[in-house]
């Protein structure tokens, strides 16, 4: 009897958790679809509205705004979808603009800066670890670098906000203290341990008999590492790149704290940026349920989800398939 019960319980819990995993996909997308405000939510809307729009609009016009907004609700829904591809992000104004391009640009800009700094550093360190570090030193180096991944992102954001931002502005003499470079450096700190670990594992996993062959041909240790091990580990290192990229792209607290959060399309790396994730983080708490703004934020979330999920999927498939192919020889 207990046998039957146990198996029932285990199975149902497992399926509940599978269902929730599926629900994550469903709900983020569901909320991204614009919906008409029903009666039930109207109360919540009015309650929230009085406190939410403090930043951009003074308290005096608050009531009018509410009226106008409610009136324009239906048109607005249609109109805003049309200009999702616009270059202006002004969600809270008389005529809200929901152009996602500056946010995309912000995310890419700061992520790219982060990865440009982190990738060479981390791969360099991984190469050092397998080529020059003795076994004893390597066993210390790895956990030490991985310690970096134990830092909560809010702590790294804080460090960027205080120390890095000051260093950058005194070094480059920039106009905006918080900017894409500061955010990039902070992101680099978070993704270095990820890239390092994955790249080091990839380099380490190249079978010993392959490096032996190179050494037996009279290659030096570094020639073996650069000409044999590194090329053989390319898929793993590419996966490290993707994982680092995905992590940086979705990171919220760091960019929220360190990049200045202005939605611009500027090419200047010393100007502030506003990323997709930071936009959700900054605005979601103050938005009206069911509103266009609410739906657009969920849409951003859904996009982030799809993007990072597929990066991970590619990373996983790429590594497995390519590595297997490489070493089993059906290329």
């Amino acid at each position: 009897m207990s046998e039957y019960l146990a198996s029932i319980i285990i199975k149902s819990v497992a399926f509940v958790s599978f269902a929730v995993i599926l629900l994550i996909f469903v709900f983020v997308f569901k909320e991204a679809i614009p919906q008409s405000t029903g009666d039930g939510t109207k109360v919540a809307q009015e309650e929230l509205q009085s406190e939410s729009y403090g930043d951009d609009i003074s308290g005096a016009v608050d009531n009018t705004v509410t009226e106008v907004k409610t009136k324009h609700e239906s048109e607005e829904g249609v109109q805003s979808i049309a200009n999702l591809t616009g270059t202006e992000w002004q969600p809270v104004s008389l005529k809200p603009k929901f152009g996602l391009l500056p946010l995309f640009w912000g995310s890419f800009k700061v992520t790219l800066l982060g990865i440009l700094m982190a990738f060479p550093l981390a791969v360099g360190a991984a190469l050092y670890s397998i080529t020059f570090a003795g076994r004893g030193f390597r066993e210390i180096l790895k956990p030490v670098i991985e310690l970096l991944s134990g830092f909560p992102s809010v702590v790294i954001g804080f460090f960027a906000l205080t120390t890095v931002a000051s260093a950058v502005s005194s070094f480059f003499g920039v106009t905006y203290r918080l900017n894409a470079v500061v955010g990039g450096i902070a992101l680099a700190i978070t993704i270095v341990p990820i890239i390092f670990t994955v790249a080091e594992d990839a380099l380490q996993s190249i079978p010993k008999h392959i490096s032996e062959a190179s050494l037996a041909l009279g290659a030096t240790k570094w020639q073996t590492a650069v000409f044999v091990i590194l090329p053989a580990a390319t898929p793993g290192i590419f996966a490290a790149f993707l994982l680092g990229f995905g992590r940086a792209f979705g990171e919220t607290m760091i960019v929220l704290m360190a990049t200045g959060n202005a939605a611009t399309m500027s090419l200047n790396i010393f100007e502030p940026v506003r990323t997709l994730s930071a936009t959700i983080g900054a605005e979601m708490a103050e938005v009206v349920f069911g509103d266009t703004h609410y739906s657009v934020l969920f849409l951003i979330g859904a996009l982030l989800f799809v993007f990072t999920f597929s990066l991970n999927a590619i990373a996983e498939f790429w590594v497995r398939k390519r590595l297997l192919k490489k070493f089993q020889g059906s290329a």
Partner: peptide, 22 residues
Amino acid sequence: VRFAVNTLAGVPSIVFGLFGLG
């Protein structure tokens, strides 16, 4: 399922927050 579990780890935590809200 295994694939979803493995890749879910790389989904930004802010997305989980959205799910919690929704």
